[in-house]
């Protein structure tokens, strides 16, 4: 059976979701998926980009932004998510921060076979923290991003959007 992905998740679609959900700040560290999105975000006047040097920093910054009345979104890769464990625990879960973490799913494949341990441990990690998550592959899935925002706001917990688009979308 063919495993062809019919359409990719376009950066323009992701940006539209950010704007639709009134995101004010993107706290982020580049991953291999997000270069075209970066160019779009940079040109979007309603967004402030806050670059971090280690993904755990994104959790404390987002926590402060939320406490101050802003609406942050975190944009990192699954490797960085796994690095962020204690900050996720203390600064997002511990502070009841309902924000969306958009996470590039490095190593993800549609058939589930991967040689990349970044992918192997991603969902077990998310489950260990009891986080809800949604997988987004293509533009057809983009409405799940808004679902994640609604859920984060309602539960006051971080909600993960996994971008399973490696090698197909943003950097094509």
């Amino acid at each position: 059976m063919a495993e062809v992905q019919s359409a990719a998740l376009s950066p323009a679609t992701v940006l539209a979701e950010m704007k639709k959900n009134s995101v004010s700040h993107i706290v982020w560290l580049p991953d291999s998926e997000t270069n075209w999105l970066y160019l779009l975000m940079q040109a979007e006047p309603s967004l402030t980009l806050v670059g971090v040097t280690r993904e755990g920093h994104a959790c404390s910054i987002a926590s402060g932004l939320a406490a101050g009345g802003a609406r942050p979104m975190i944009l990192i890769q699954n490797t960085g998510l796994q690095e962020s464990g204690d900050s996720l625990r203390g600064w997002l879960l511990g502070m009841n921060v309902g924000c969306v973490m958009m996470v590039g799913y490095r190593g993800w494949t549609r058939h589930g076979v991967t040689t990349d341990t970044a992918a192997t441990y991603t969902e077990p990690f998310i489950n260990a923290y009891g986080l809800d998550y949604y997988l987004v592959e293509s533009d057809a899935d983009a409405s799940r991003i808004s679902v994640a925002f609604e859920e984060a706001e309602k539960t006051k917990r971080p909600v993960v959007v996994l971008v399973g688009d490696e090698y197909h979308g943003f950097n094509r």
């Binding site: 004010s24 806050v50 755990g56 404390s60 101050g68 625990r89 203390g90 600064w91």
Partner: peptide
Amino acid sequence: PLGDPAMGGHAGFALGLALAQ
């Protein structure tokens, strides 16, 4: 005053507050 939510994060939290306010 937050005590210690997770070590290493006070500067990030305060930065976020400063950007939001």
